[in-house]
Design a binder for these strands. Structure first.
Lengths: 183, 183, 183, 183
DNA sequence: TATGAATGAGGATTCATTCAT
DNA sequence: TATGAATGAATCCTCATTCAT
């Protein structure tokens, strides 16, 4: 089961969704096509498993680094949020990219939505607690803006500009993003 | 040629990338499959043409509304940038969505890159001019942050949260984004 | 289109429904699998076409030999009915067998039902006209009994006992069946 | 072994021949697929066993009700024959139907032939004894006609027209069939 | 003897692309 | 130049059967 998921992920990264045929996946994972379908009822299910696994890994990272945040002051908390986002994207950037770009088609949008909603909630919960320091009415909007911004910045930074961005700049970017959001 | 592009766009929007077979496109556009291949050497080329057309339209909007910007003060200019981004996304949101989600698979990433680079340049050029009012060293980084943020916010706002975001909130969001970026 | 139907019929006869794969049919009929699906949207449709063609042929035989029947006396008419049934079964006995035995699965039961209903109606119509000579109340039942009997006798005679039944006996059987039904 | 046959029969009735996969049969009968193949060398063998069992049951009914017949007068005997045929078909009409429709494909025609030959023999034996009351030369032919007719009438009556045929009519049909055959 | 994971040939169907007319 | 019938590689998936434990 695990080699199947692993093989799927690898092929997804290397060749993209369309070239990831079930027969190919079976072959690469050293399993017969029959066995593949014993474990996963469809190609969709297999891809869903890849998504899930990736998200588990991310959420693990996120949760473990976010426990202390609620007691921290605004600016520190924000830096933490941004840093966590970067870390998450660095778990497996290439896979992250394929999943983000090619997967919506599968009808597994729910999975992704649920996932981003969870992140959204975590963030919102923090803002809720820090409401007094914020002077903001519309928490919903504020959360949306922040989460979107952080996600986009880290996503783009890691995926599209990894070469352009030196480590220094990355540090700067984290600062920048945090400051931005703190505004 | 134009009905082909148009038909492709329509089908892409209505049925998604996978259902957009060349035969179907030919049929819908009232052209024989043979002729389709006389104008476009491959399905990929056809989709690329759709992308290009969409981006032309966007750039047209962007350019025409951005000519005056260079002489404006920072905050006004920023609001203009954000507003333009929103407008651009509203040209044909559904098409924009499909293209954004499915196009990476076509291997036409260059197209997108070129495109976003152009936006990037325009923005950077403005910052260059306003350098003195900014107190920022790393223009490259600043541009990246701003463009990414604006793009992400408007994209998400228009595509994924159009129902949640009332017009009021949209206004607020534009403000917020502008303010964010101005920081 | 016609070679496809023909090839399907041949394969159906030779190897049975399960071995009649669309790829095989295409190959035998000297047509690419792609073309097959250009003419028939599914294997089912192809088999349906075979059924239809066979039934057309039978109904042609039946109608052309049954026009005069309505004016004939009971015993003559009955002999005609039986003779026609035999003829019909002899058009393509082997194909008739496969269709009768293996096709119900296709969900094209309607086709067959419609078909036998038409025969039923023809026969019933005759009885209706000859009601006075019959001394029978329940025409529905009488028709059912007669049609079923004739069909079964001819079917079995032609398909399962063709070797046992000499031509003499066939003649005798026709007599017998006619007499039976006339009773 | 018996649960296997039973499960096969049930699945055959419920889902048809094509959905009756050996894995499914094993699962339903609470036996591992491995054990299934220990008892039956192939799917075909399993289905053959179902046929055999069904025919055993029928023959049991037939024999037990037919012992007295040989001493009875022609018309009484005929009614008995018909009645027995109806009873036989009512043992498990649905199973009977599937077997009748789908079994030819299994290549177990011999089974059916043997079976109908046994019926044929029983009937012929009776006619042999009653030869003097009959005034018929060709006993072979007479038997064929009678057996086929009875079988077809009851089969059709029970399977295809069960709703159309009220109990009254059923009685009438039995009469009719008996009279027909007695002729 | 019982198990059930593993097998892989084979089936129906799709679709980008070609080429003779 | 326009047409559209023809192509066939490739796809997802099923299922009878085997065999190591």
């Amino acid at each position: 089961m695990d080699n199947l998921i692993e093989a799927t992920a690898r092929i997804l990264v290397k060749d993209g969704f369309d070239k990831a045929s079930t027969n190919r996946i079976a072959e690469v994972s050293g399993v017969s096509i029959g066995s593949l379908y014993q474990y996963f009822p469809s190609k969709e299910a297999l891809v869903a498993a890849v998504i899930e696994r990736h998200q588990q890994q991310i959420m693990q990272t996120v949760r473990s680094t976010l426990t202390q945040v609620s007691t921290q002051p605004l600016d520190k908390a924000m830096r933490r949020f941004v840093a966590v986002a970067v870390e998450a994207h660095r778990l497996d950037p290439q896979l992250h990219r394929v999943l983000a770009e090619q997967i919506p088609r599968v009808g597994k949008l729910e999975k992704l939505e649920t996932f981003s909603r969870e992140n959204f909630s975590l963030f919102r919960a923090y803002l809720e607690g820090a409401r007094d320091d914020l002077g903001v009415d519309d928490l919903e909007l504020a959360s949306f803006v922040c989460v979107t911004t952080i996600e986009a910045l880290t996503h783009n930074a890691v995926l599209h500009h990894s070469k352009v961005l030196t480590d220094d700049r990355m540090e700067a970017l984290i600062d920048e993003a945090a400051r931005l959001v703190t505004g």
